[in-house]
Design a protein around this nucleic acid. Structure first.
Lengths: 247, 247
DNA sequence: CGCGTCATTGATGTGCATCAAGTGGTGTGG
DNA sequence: CCACACCACTTGATGCACATCAATGACGCG
């Protein structure tokens, strides 16, 4: 709803992948000049989503993948009986929408957790271009495979970790990804509620909150609302690999 | 270790995708004659794996995807501290090995739960051919997307379901896939142990066993060792969507 | 300032894990 | 063919981690 005063040419320049500062995150590296220019063609438009708005919803037709330029998303699946599960949190430079490819419509919701902007990449254009640019083809395959491997990790977490291990793994994963984007290794602002963290980790929000408090008691982190400072990364890593209770 | 007496020409014929009875499960449909012949080139060799043997292991270099011709596999990931998690069970017509694409080596183990045979499809050959045959390209994308969506379902299961819901969902999923392969809708033989089921479902083997017993008491299934007969499919479906305890 | 949303903390309950004992099926070797 | 060992499975007793229920506190926004 904000008035659009940006003139088209400027917009066009800003859209180009070839001079996007997130390029090394969402595009193949080591491309030649000419291939790079072709890749610019992938991004059809950009789209802004307000906090709380949805990029796509379960059941909507699938046409495009989205590269997140700014902002933060969650994806979640739901059953008929109202239960739902956060399947992931996505940040700048990550690709969203891969779930829609199989059945030509989306099977989960993508919700913006803060005001966001995405590059819209029509999938038929991606397929077309990746037939010509080998590096793009490989890249697309790697992105999908990465998502599969990531989900393996979540399954491991949900299937066999205790609450503190889950939260520790979650925090380490978040800072690691933020660090790759130039943010601090030890400080982060959670863009999601305790309930959303809990849904992702298979825990209730109270358990998430209690586990945070335990970490604070143990001097591992400082928590003030959604602001988290990690004081002892090594301790978190130990927790993830601890497994004390079992033998 | 069995002596190979099959002459090469016969082997070659048997390998061809174009006259494989699993074709509609693992290959794109509606191909023209010529494209079909090209696709036959994908399968380089076949490989037999004895029960208990591994198709690939975590850390091994990735070169190929595998289409299961016969047999039954599990894939599992492990942490350094010895904990492991079954991430899926795969049967004839399904594709295995997608996890290896990102980092050019595998990130999980694939173990045969019964004597098995797979078609070896070198991935560079798949990429090469899918640049030319659009239907193959689309098919590869759909297979990867399907795996992502499947894992979303597992995350939902692990994150928010109770033991009986998990087991019911598991059984329904198994028979549905077996039915698609021409087997009974109501009868199945489990190829995995209670412990492997438990690992997949995030439960201990005792809980799996008890839940089976409960289903038997309720007249929903008959269980004799690994032989399961589903007496009341509707009841299983109700259990999956029940969610009684929560509000 | 008052209300809604999100978070924290305590008290209590429960579903599943853990520990343990026993059964049945399978394969092996005498 | 039987005896034995082994493994997968079942079933019971007990404990604990996390869920549930409930009350209060901290922000932020109109």
């Amino acid at each position: 709803m904000t008035r659009e005063t940006t003139p088209p040419p400027l917009q066009a320049i800003k859209v180009a992948c070839s001079n996007c500062n997130l390029r090394e995150l969402c595009m193949p590296v080591g491309l030649e000049e000419q291939q790079l220019k072709r890749i610019d063609e992938i991004v059809a438009t950009r789209r802004k989503i307000k906090r709380g708005g949805t990029l796509f919803r379960n059941g909507e037709p699938f046409t495009s993948l989205f590269a997140i330029r700014t902002g933060f998303f969650k994806t979640c699946v739901a059953t008929e009986d109202g239960r739902d599960q956060v399947t992931g949190f996505q940040m700048a430079g990550e690709i969203i929408g891969l779930d829609g490819i199989v059945h030509d419509h989306h099977t989960c919701d993508a919700v913006a957790l803060e005001d966001a902007e995405v590059c819209v990449m029509p999938f038929d254009r991606i397929e077309e271009l990746s037939r010509e640019v080998t590096a793009l083809q490989t890249h697309v395959h790697k992105i999908m495979s990465r998502e599969i491997v990531r989900e393996h990790g979540v399954m491991l977490l949900l299937g066999s970790m205790r609450a503190d291990e889950r939260l520790a793994a979650f925090l380490l994963n978040l800072v690691q990804r933020l660090h790759a984007r130039g943010f601090s290794q030890s400080e982060l602002i959670l863009r999601m509620t305790r309930e959303e963290i809990g849904s992702y980790l298979g825990l209730k929000l109270e358990t998430v909150s209690r586990t945070f408090s335990k970490f604070v008691e143990d001097g591992i982190v400082e928590v003030k609302q959604r602001h988290v400072r990690i004081l002892d990364t090594a301790a978190l890593k130990r927790i993830v690999n601890s497994h004390q209770g079992c033998h």
